[in-house]
Design a protein around this nucleic acid. Structure first.
Lengths: 361, 361
DNA sequence: TTGTAGGCGTTATCAG
DNA sequence: CTGATAACGCCTACAA
């Protein structure tokens, strides 16, 4: 593993600067020389060291990506968006899972700074992080995703949480529900509060008073949704509809309903925040507030690369992406029929089974 | 961003070697000096450059992770396993999605070598990759995950695909099915062939002859499962049971069944390879061959770190992890009841709703 | 058209 | 107990 530019230079009978210039195309080199150099590179299986290059250029061609947990489908898709634009632009992505733990967040931020990543993309844990503030303050490229920075403002790519949540709850109210419960996420996380706010706005807009017993704070994970839903069901007067504010809690809540034999939507209507690809196979199909997860990742990565490459000191930008209410059966009001949605997802296979892609055998 | 060890040395009134030794705890430093140095570091917000360190030590404290696609739940969980053990050991993880494309694979391998990662974890695309062979040949730490290397053998963490698939199909046969179809994955990918082999072994073991029309090769993605299932349904004599060889195709197949109004398991029984956490909310619940996805990641990362740190030239090791057949309703033979499984997943909340974790409000 | 040499920020080997 | 200083592998001004 120790073949260096010197080895190549020796092998090709030229100086190291020539080799360097051949590699980087940074000055004219005679065709013949160039070929000898390339041949030597080939022969020695030489790969220039990005480490040395980074040291010299003060640029690592790598970005850090801090998210809560890659297992959450929301982040999974977002990460893919980030990776796609980063790699296309020649950047590597260093993945870090914080689990909403400010200590982990801090330690990863440190590691990333030591590694001299060119920029950082993060879904900040709710707690204020002085280290992060200092980083942003110093002009280091940082873009927040999914949630705004709890400290010093920086670029952020967010979705319209309040409006999305409000639309979801208003839809339920429009269907006649008067006792609408909510299972919200962890309080310190910005999005939880916003979605809860959307819920409240919807109630207020329709002259309903909030019943505190119908408002439950879950842990944003499967079991949180499960537990809180059981609690709601155990109330003397349970809600007739429930809004869950993230995908994992929605699934947990559904599990609870199934465990108790509660029928959806007849006994209880449900709408969740954040759609996921395979929700299509759930029955009844789930009504959700869909977030453009992949696009969030793409957009954030693009913003970050811009900052990195322009070193611009523009004021913090904030991109707000819209959500989309996908009305399906779980809320009691059927949306488009199955066939239509399947067609959307898989193409015209359903509509015209005759012209299927030919079988492999 | 440019505070270096020299700045710290100057600020503390010591030499750079002393600073270095304080940071690394690599030789004794008088308590007083040490404190001055630490204070200076604090004051200047100094973070030592891993880039320079890597250059000097010829060690990057980073590993590359090449997978097909982070959006596939199988890899999602695996990645988390890798990240957990890597970060605990002080390594960063560089994530790369190959999409089963050998060209992407090659280009990522190059990038990773240039970045001088200390080792590589990869789910190799099926095609032979001379570059990879050379890497392994040279003794560079490489561990394959999910599939064995198509070229020069190296460490690998795999699951018992043949046995798992065979068990799944034998279970169906045991339930009386005689026309069992299979939707297998892309041919060049090793696991597809093994699972297909398991299917064949099961048929043979029970004296059934293979009907080629019941064997379909999908693309390992949602739409592949969807399309192939439609084809199977359109046969003059459709199968009475189907085995799908990966999670995404299983979901696609389910979507197809729902689109056609085929009832599971009454009209058609189904068993899929690869369980996923939220399968618990599907109705009927899905019978699956569960792989220990997280453990695969953990184990592979551990093997890799071992190779990296011992620089051992042991012969390639191959770890085979067992699968587990989770019998649920979709195959027609109910397994344990809902409550039991929910309890397994969420703890005793179901069993004794009285001692629920207290509500947040 | 090509070569020489200084320096990027560390670590580690010598001295002292 | 602490300091100089020579690498590590590359890029790039400056020379030729």
């Amino acid at each position: 593993m120790a073949v260096t530019i010197d080895d190549v230079a020796r092998e090709a009978g030229v100086s190291i600067s020539t080799v360097s210039h051949v590699i980087n195309g940074t000055r004219f080199v005679a065709e013949a020389t160039k070929e000898r150099v390339l041949a030597a590179i080939e022969r020695l299986r030489y790969e220039p060291s990005s480490v040395a290059r980074s040291l010299k250029r003060d640029k690592s061609q790598a970005i850090g990506l801090l998210i809560t947990d890659i297992s959450n489908p929301f982040f999974t898709s977002l990460v893919r968006g980030v990776e796609d634009v980063a790699s296309r632009a020649g950047y590597s992505v260093i993945l870090c899972n914080t689990d909403e733990d400010p200590d982990k967040e801090l330690s990863y931020l440190r590691v990333l700074r030591r590694k001299r990543v060119d920029g950082i993309l993060l879904a900040p844990t709710g707690t204020r992080q002085p280290y992060l503030d200092a980083l942003v303050e110093s002009g280091f490229p940082v873009v927040c995703i999914d949630r705004p920075s709890p400290g010093r403002p920086c670029d952020a790519v967010l979705v319209e949480n309040v409006a999305g949540a409000r639309a979801a709850v208003e839809h339920l109210i429009g269907l006649g529900h008067r006792r609408v419960g909510v299972i919200s996420g962890l309080a310190p996380v910005g999005t939880s509060g916003e979605r809860l706010e959307g819920y409240r706005q919807a109630l207020r807009a329709h002259g309903l008073v909030e019943d505190p017993r119908l408002v439950r704070e879950g842990n944003s994970r499967l079991d949180g949704g499960y537990r809180r839903m059981l609690e709601l069901l155990d109330l003397p007067t349970p809600p007739t509809a429930v809004f869950t504010t993230n995908n994992l809690m929605t699934l947990g809540a559904l599990a609870a309903l199934q465990a108790r034999g509660v029928r959806v939507p007849d006994d209880l209507a449900i709408v969740g925040f954040d759609d996921f690809e395979w929700a299509i196979v759930l029955r009844p199909r789930l009504t959700t507030v869909a977030q453009p997860t992949y696009e969030i990742g793409e957009t954030a990565a693009r913003l970050l690369l811009e900052r990195i490459e322009k070193r611009s000191d523009d004021p913090p930008r904030r991109v707000l992406l819209p959500t989309r209410l996908l009305v399906r059966e779980s809320c009691g009001a059927g949306g488009q029929p199955d066939e239509q949605e399947l067609e959307d997802v898989f193409g015209r296979a359903v509509a015209r089974p005759s012209d299927l892609e030919p079988a492999a055998r």
